[in-house]
Computed example of a mutant assay.
Amino acid sequence: MVPGWKTNGKTRTQADSFRDAARGFFHTVKTERNMRIHLTAAVYVLFFSPFLGVTRSEYGVLLLTIAMVIAAEAFNTAMEMLCDYAQKSYNPLIGKTKDIAAGAVLVCAVFAAFVGIAVLWRPEAILALLITIVTNPLYLVLFILSLILAFFFIFKVPCGVREKLHKK
């Protein structure tokens, strides 16, 4: 941001910039199912990591990988919105541009899965965790509830949000 930059006669503050960034992030979460899938996967990975004995450096790798996927999805969304704004009718070049941006997200997500496997693949610890969840009724109920909440977060809750955003 250019220092002293004014919008509508008002000098923008750092707080304005953070507010705008947060609004953009939450807009992406509300309107993009794939972003909600990435966030849900990230929450599960970060929640279960301590039970698998993840080290601090491994957490660093996981956090950077998660940030890469989420940022790629946000860039893809921004690219798609810009393309849709620039070209109202079908254009093969715009279509390829959007495909390339989506492909970049796919590459990030696939390699994130590889990182997750490399860091989290501990068969004995995973088996012990599964046994703990399945044999403890409270943990089992909480896990099932988390899956239901994740399903609603990904597929149901944001229904109609896009229409409400477009009305404003």
Score class of each variant (00 low, 15 high):
residue 79 M to N: 11
residue 12 R to W: 04
residue 137 P to E: 12
residue 149 L to M: 09
residue 71 A to I: 15
residue 102 A to Y: 12
residue 81 M to R: 15
residue 22 A to D: 04
residue 110 V to D: 02
residue 96 K to T: 10
residue 58 E to K: 10
residue 116 G to K: 05
residue 113 A to F: 03
residue 107 V to C: 02
residue 68 M to T: 13
residue 168 K to D: 11
residue 16 D to F: 07
residue 15 A to G: 01
residue 148 I to T: 02
residue 8 N to I: 00
residue 67 A to V: 13
residue 75 F to K: 12
residue 45 V to A: 11
residue 111 F to S: 06
residue 5 W to P: 00
residue 112 A to K: 06
residue 18 F to R: 11
residue 150 A to V: 04
residue 118 A to K: 11
residue 141 V to G: 03
residue 91 N to G: 12
residue 165 L to M: 13
residue 120 L to T: 05
residue 111 F to K: 01
residue 38 H to V: 01
residue 45 V to R: 08
residue 43 V to A: 15
residue 31 T to N: 08
residue 160 G to A: 11
residue 82 L to E: 14
residue 130 L to D: 10
residue 33 R to V: 10
residue 69 V to M: 09
residue 114 F to A: 08
residue 129 L to H: 02
residue 141 V to Y: 11
residue 56 R to A: 15
residue 72 A to H: 06
residue 53 G to S: 10
residue 48 F to Y: 15
residue 40 T to Q: 08
residue 4 G to A: 12
residue 125 A to Y: 01
residue 32 E to G: 02
residue 126 I to F: 06
residue 91 N to S: 15
residue 43 V to C: 08
residue 105 V to K: 02
residue 20 D to Q: 12
residue 43 V to I: 08
residue 167 K to S: 15
residue 10 K to D: 09
residue 47 F to D: 04
residue 42 A to E: 09
residue 163 E to Y: 03
residue 156 K to F: 01
residue 167 K to I: 06
residue 162 R to D: 14
residue 158 P to D: 05
residue 107 V to K: 06
residue 159 C to Y: 07
residue 20 D to E: 14
residue 72 A to L: 11
residue 151 F to T: 05
residue 146 S to L: 14
residue 164 K to S: 08
residue 95 G to K: 12
residue 71 A to W: 08
residue 53 G to H: 09
residue 155 F to Y: 15
residue 16 D to I: 07
residue 124 E to A: 14
residue 140 L to W: 13
residue 57 S to D: 10
residue 4 G to Y: 08
residue 27 H to W: 09
residue 160 G to V: 07
residue 163 E to H: 03
residue 66 I to Y: 03
